[in-house]
Amino acid sequence: MICEVRASSWLIAHVAKDLGIHKEALRGWVRRGEADRGERDGRLTSAEQDALRQLHKEAAELRQANEILKAASVLLPRRRRSTVPDAAEQAMDRLCDRGLGVGPRLPGP
């Protein structure tokens, strides 16, 4: 069909009518063929459109996975650093309170 349009001097509307299809469908196919052959600037080729479609699909899947992970993270306990000193620090504090002088060692003679 596209070859008929390119080979003839007929308008797309006339060729489409002879073929029994809508003129805009034929016009789209002609433009697609021109883009694929590099004859039309500003339009993606079929291969580029397929790649773009695949990237959009992957991005949607990643967004969905991210939402699932966000929802799951709410169910998991959070590990955060406690403001309460750990057991070793508490023990050292108790010894210091009893006057046992536990603290950093100074270099001696």
Rank of each mutant, 00 (worst) to 15 (best):
E58K: 06
E48C: 07
D41W: 02
G108I: 09
A88S: 10
C3F: 07
G42C: 09
A51L: 11
E24G: 02
Q54F: 04
K23Y: 15
V5C: 13
E61C: 00
R63C: 12
R6D: 15
L69N: 09
R6L: 15
E89F: 01
A87V: 10
R94K: 05
D93R: 08
A51I: 07
A16M: 05
L26H: 02
I68E: 13
G108H: 02
E34A: 15
G33V: 03
Q49C: 08
Q90M: 07
A60V: 03
D97W: 00
G99Y: 10
I68L: 09
P104H: 03
E61L: 09
D97P: 00
P109K: 00
L95I: 01
E67H: 04
P107Y: 01
G20Q: 06
R27S: 15
A72E: 11
P77I: 04
E48D: 07
R37M: 14
P109D: 01
D36R: 02
R105T: 13
R53F: 03
G28Q: 10
V102I: 15
L100H: 10
Q54L: 11
P85S: 11
A59I: 05
A91W: 04
H22L: 02
L106G: 11
L11G: 05
R78H: 12
R98S: 12
G101Y: 10
D50Y: 10
V15I: 14
S8C: 04
P107S: 08
A25G: 01
A91D: 09
A51D: 05
R43K: 13
Q64M: 10
N66S: 12
D36Y: 01
L19N: 09
C3D: 10
S82L: 07
L52R: 13
R53S: 11
Q90C: 09
P104Q: 01
Q64T: 11
H22F: 02
R43W: 13
D50A: 15
A87P: 02
R79S: 08
E89V: 11
K17V: 03
E48H: 10
G99D: 15
H22C: 04
A60Y: 02
A16P: 06
I2P: 02
C96E: 14
R80L: 02
E34F: 09
V102M: 12
A88V: 13
L19I: 11
G99I: 13
A35E: 00
R32W: 00
L19V: 11
S73F: 05
R53K: 14
R40L: 15
L52S: 10
R40Q: 08
L44R: 14
A87T: 09
R53N: 03
V5E: 07
E89R: 01
R79M: 08
V74L: 13
V15E: 02
D86Q: 03
L26E: 07
I21R: 14
D36E: 14
V30S: 08
L55N: 03
S8F: 04
L95V: 06
V74A: 13
R6T: 14
L62C: 12
L52F: 04
A7H: 04
D97I: 00
K70L: 12
I2A: 07
V74N: 09
A71T: 08
G108N: 06
I21D: 01
